[in-house]
Design a protein around this nucleic acid. Structure first.
Lengths: 352, 352
DNA sequence: TTGTATGCGTTATCAT
DNA sequence: ATGATAACGCATACAA
C-alpha cells in the first residue's frame, strides 16, 4: 500500500484563470472576497472551477504581497506546567475573537531557545509576540522592537526598554497568604520554597516577610525552608519532590510551625504528601497554604487553600493589549498589574 | 512615551546588495549559507552590511520560492488536559532534533474548529500534520492527503482512508486494570466512567468486561457507574465532578464494590475525593485504580495506582513517523500500537 | 566567482 | 467589469 512521495503541484489562481478562461486578476478578486465588483456569471464560473480543482490559497504568497500577518507569537517557559496552558487558553480565546492565530513555543527557560524562537517568529513575519522572557539581556529583542515588532511581556519583567507588560503582584499575594494564616490564629508561619532564583519567588518571599512584619511577627530563619538541590528541572515532579524534602526538614526541626506557606501549589502538594505520610494531619496538626491556584489544587486531599494567580485572565489581557497595539494607529506602552485573591479550601485550620 | 505605529521597512537582500555594491544573487548566496562559492572579501562585506542594516531574512520569500516548509502542524483536543502537554513535549523533542517547528492548535473537540485549523495549516504550506481528529467524516482531510499532505493520527482512529497511525491499546489497559485488581483479591469490581461517547472510553470498557470474563467474574450492571450530565465540558473540573457524583451514587447503592476502576485519573481523583469526604478510607475500605497516569496522579492522597498511557512516547513516535514519511523518498503507511503498563502506587489494597 | 533575469503565488495598479 | 503587468523577498538557472 505504498504511495509515491511525489511533490504534487497545487492549483494556483493562474491555473484557475486558464480553465475558467479569465485572468488571474479576476480570479484573485473573487477568491479573496475582494470588494471589487465582478459579474455574477464569471464569479460563479471561477468559484466552480476553484472547487473542481481543489484550490486552496497559498498564504505565503498573500502574506508576502500584502505584508500582513494574522499570527502572533507566544513564548512560555514550559507547557507542562499547568499554569501555562491556562494562560495560553486565555490568549487563544482573545486571539480567535479578532481572527488571529497563535504560534506557541516552549523556551524551557533556556536563553538560546528563547532567542531562537523569537528570531524564527520574526522571520515568519509575525507582528507581535507575547512572552515570558528568561533573558537578562534584551538588546536583541529591543532591536527587533525598534524594527516594528510589538511585544507584551508577562511573568518576569523586561527592564532594559519600554514595552507592554502584564504583571502580577506576587508580593501582595505573599502578604495575603500570611494575613490569612494570621487571621486564622497562626503565629508560627513557615515559608517553603525552591531556591530564590526567580523574581517571582523572591517577590512572594518579600510578601511573606512584609506580611509577618505587618502582623508584628518576627521573621525567623528557622521557619524558612528552601529546598536545596542539584539542578533545577523544568517539570512538576521536581517541585513536588522539593515539597517532600521540605516536609522532612520541617519535621526534623525543633521548632514546628503551625502553618506552612508554599511558594507554589505543587510544592504545597509535596509538603502535604510528606507530612501526611509521616502521620501528620492536615490541617489538624499543621496548616498548608499554596500559591497559584492551579486546577489540581482543588483535587488533592485535603483541597488546598491557596492564592489565586489569574492565568487565563493574564493571557486574555496580554493578547488584548497586543492586538490593540497592533491595530491601533498609534499607542503608548501599557502596563497592567493583576491582583491576587484568596481561595479558601480545606488545608488551613482555624487555631483560635 | 508613545511610539508611532508606522510600518517599518525591513532591509532586504536588495538593500544590502545596493549598500555593499554587489548583486542580490551574491547577497543571497552568502546570507543563506549556500554552498555556492563566494570570495572572501565580498562575503565579509555582505555579512558586515547585513549586520549593520539589521537584516533578517523574510522566510515567506524563501518558502515561497523553495516550496519547502520546516513546520509541522499539531492538533490536539485541549491543551489544558494534562495528557496533551506531555504528548506535545514528545512531538517537540523529536521535531527539534530534525530542525522542525511545530504549529499547535486546540480543536476543543469541535469539528469546525478542527477543519478550520487543518485548512489554515495547509494554506501555510505545512507538509505534515499530527492530529487527534474528532470528525467522523474525513473526506476533506482525505482530499488534502491526495494533494500531498502527510498526516499521522493518534487518539481516535481514522478509518475512511489509509494514513499513518499511532494508537494505544485501551482494551488491553482495561483488562490490565481488572487483572491487577483480581490479583489483589478483588471480586466486586466497579467501572466508573463519563458517558461512553468516545471510542477510547468504550474500548476501556470493553477491556473491563473482557477482564471480568477472563477471571470468571460475571458482569453486573450494578457495578457500572456512568456519570449522567447535562453537557460535556472540555476541562478537568468536569471529570472531577463526575467522579464525585459517582462516589455518591456508589455509596448510595446496596452493593458496595471493593474496587473501583475509573476510566481516567481525574475521574478517579473525583471518586477518591467523594469517598474520602464521606469517611470512606482508601484503600482500606475501597480500592481505586485510574487510567492515563497523568503527572498529578502521583501527587494525590493516596497516590493513585493507575494504567500508564505513554503520552510523551506517543508524541515522539508520531513525530518520528511523520518526519520519516516527509523526508523518505517513498514510504508505506505505518501503524503502531502502544501498550499499557501498570503503575502501582497506594490506592489499591490487597484484600486476600 | 559574479551578475542578470526569472519565477514562486498572490494582490494591486493602471489601462481598457 | 476585466485584463495585463508589476511587485512582494528570495533563490537559482544561466550567462558571463
Amino acid at each position: 500500500m505504498g504511495k509515491q512521495n511525489q511533490t504534487i503541484k497545487k492549483a494556483t489562481i493562474y491555473d484557475i484563470a486558464q480553465k475558467a478562461g479569465t485572468s488571474t486578476a479576476t480570479v484573485s478578486r473573487v477568491l479573496s472576497n475582494s470588494s471589487y465588483p465582478t459579474s455574477r456569471e464569471i464569479r460563479k464560473k471561477v468559484l466552480d472551477t476553484a472547487q473542481k480543482m481543489n484550490y486552496t490559497p497559498n498564504l505565503l504568497g498573500r502574506m508576502l504581497k500584502k505584508n500582513e500577518s494574522r499570527d502572533i507569537g507566544v513564548i512560555i517557559p514550559n507547557i507542562s506546567n499547568p499554569f501555562y496552558p491556562q494562560l495560553v487558553l486565555g490568549i487563544e480565546t482573545e486571539a480567535k475573537k479578532h481572527g488571529f492565530n497563535i504560534l506557541l513555543c516552549n523556551s524551557f527557560r533556556d536563553v538560546s531557545n528563547e532567542k531562537k524562537y523569537i528570531e524564527s517568529m520574526y522571520q515568519k513575519q509575525v507582528k507581535g509576540i507575547i512572552l515570558s522572557t528568561i533573558s537578562e539581556e534584551h538588546g536583541f529583542l529591543k532591536k527587533l522592537c525598534e524594527n516594528g515588532l510589538k511585544i507584551v511581556g508577562f511573568d518576569q519583567n523586561i527592564e532594559d526598554f519600554q514595552c507592554n507588560k502584564i504583571s502580577f503582584d506576587f508580593t501582595a499575594g505573599g502578604m495575603m497568604a500570611v494575613d490569612y494564616l494570621v487571621s486564622m490564629g497562626h503565629k508560627k508561619i513557615a515559608f517553603a520554597t525552591s531556591p530564590l532564583t526567580r523574581r517571582s519567588r523572591r517577590e512572594i518571599f518579600d510578601g511573606y516577610k512584609l506580611g509577618l512584619m505587618k502582623n508584628n511577627i518576627e521573621f525567623s530563619a528557622d521557619y524558612l525552608y528552601v529546598a536545596e538541590l542539584e539542578k533545577e528541572v523544568e517539570n512538576g515532579t521536581f517541585e513536588f519532590e522539593n515539597g517532600i524534602k521540605i516536609a522532612r526538614k520541617c519535621l526534623a526541626s525543633k521548632k514546628l510551625p503551625t502553618g506552612i506557606f508554599a511558594v507554589n501549589d505543587v510544592t504545597a502538594m509535596g509538603i502535604m504528601h510528606g507530612l501526611l505520610s509521616s502521620g501528620v494531619k492536615i490541617p489538624e496538626d499543621i496548616s498548608v497554604i499554596g500559591f497559584d491556584n492551579i486546577e489540581f489544587s482543588a483535587m488533592v486531599n485535603p483541597p488546598l487553600t491557596t492564592i489565586n494567580q489569574p492565568a487565563f485572565e493574564t493571557g486574555r489581557l496580554a493578547c488584548k493589549v497586543l492586538i490593540e497595539n497592533l491595530e491601533g494607529d498609534e499607542s503608548d506602552y501599557v502596563s497592567f498589574k493583576l491582583e491576587p485573591s484568596l481561595v479558601q479550601r480545606e488545608s488551613v485550620r482555624n487555631v483560635k
